[in-house]
């Protein structure tokens, strides 16, 4: 095992009832890198991502086999879901700010983890919004509803909300698919910036995006990881013919 490995996935199988959505996944995800997950619709990217912070626990009838460790600790046996999720934050495909003020959205995580002091919260909110590159746009309307800003701003707000709990890993499920090109570029720049401090795992349907910003890329196909390598290799030198077909758009 590589000693920079953040997540280590061994022989992971996942079933929704009888349907096997993930098959024998093995993957080492490196610390402070961006790992992109690509593959056709329904191949299990979101399922895999949600397994990493145990969001699948909330789904009825899910069975999981195999092992996932975070910094060497088994996330199923040695950690509870709540503390895992504070270390592994998640940004969803659709921006999903809560129907509260911008401030309360960012302060939500710290508050549920017991921080009540106004000055501390103020500081966390400002720092998180700055990190998510949205501070300048919202600093004058922190008390306004988070639902009243643009979709791109909402997504960065959601990233700020995740940063506020100071996670080690950020999972992003197609964070830009609902956004316009300019907002998309902002989020991509942000991801590259955040990579300095965080491990990022991002599902994307956008090949250029994966190629532009990720260090490693995993290609999923019907529940299996066909190929997992440096982004460089996946895009310029794929070993599997199916990978090549997919990234060149010739995939059936």
């Amino acid at each position: 095992m590589n000693n920079n490995s953040k997540f280590s996935v061994e022989d992971l199988d996942l079933f929704y009832g009888d349907f096997q959505a993930l098959k024998k996944i093995n993957m080492e995800i490196q610390e402070k890198e961006i790992t992109a997950l690509i593959g056709p619709s329904g191949c299990g990217k979101s399922t895999f991502l949600k397994t990493l912070n145990r969001m699948n626990d909330l789904v009825e009838g899910v069975t999981i086999k195999g092992k996932i460790s975070l910094d060497g600790k088994d996330i199923f046996k040695e950690m509870d879901a709540i503390s895992l999720r504070t270390r592994v934050g998640m940004v969803f495909q659709q921006p999903n700010p809560f129907p509260m003020s911008i401030y309360d959205n960012v302060a939500y995580g710290p508050r549920i983890h017991g921080i009540t002091k106004k000055s501390v919260l103020d500081e966390i909110v400002e720092r998180s919004l700055r990190q998510a590159a949205i501070w300048d746009e919202v600093k004058d309307k922190l008390k306004k509803s988070a639902l009243a800003i643009s979709g791109g701003q909402q997504q960065r707000l959601c990233i700020a909300r995740t940063l506020a709990i100071e996670p080690e890993v950020i999972l992003m499920d197609e964070p830009t698919s609902a956004l316009d090109p300019i907002s998309t570029l902002k989020i991509e720049d942000l991801a590259v910036e955040l990579k300095k401090d965080y491990t990022i795992i991002m599902v994307t349907h956008n090949m250029q995006q994966a190629a532009r910003i990720s260090d490693k890329t995993a290609f999923f196909l019907v529940g299996e990881v066909v190929e997992f390598d440096s982004t460089e290799n996946i895009f310029n030198n794929p070993k599997d013919i199916r990978t090549e077909e997919y990234i060149t758009g010739r995939f059936g």
Binding site: N53, M55, L58, I82, S83, R85, T86, G89, M90, F92, Q94, N96, P97, F98, P99, Y108, G109, I112, H113, C158, R161, T162, I165
Partner: peptide, 11 residues
Amino acid sequence: SYRQGSYGLGA
């Protein structure tokens, strides 16, 4: 999505 957002933050 509200529920998921909240659980995702460790609530």
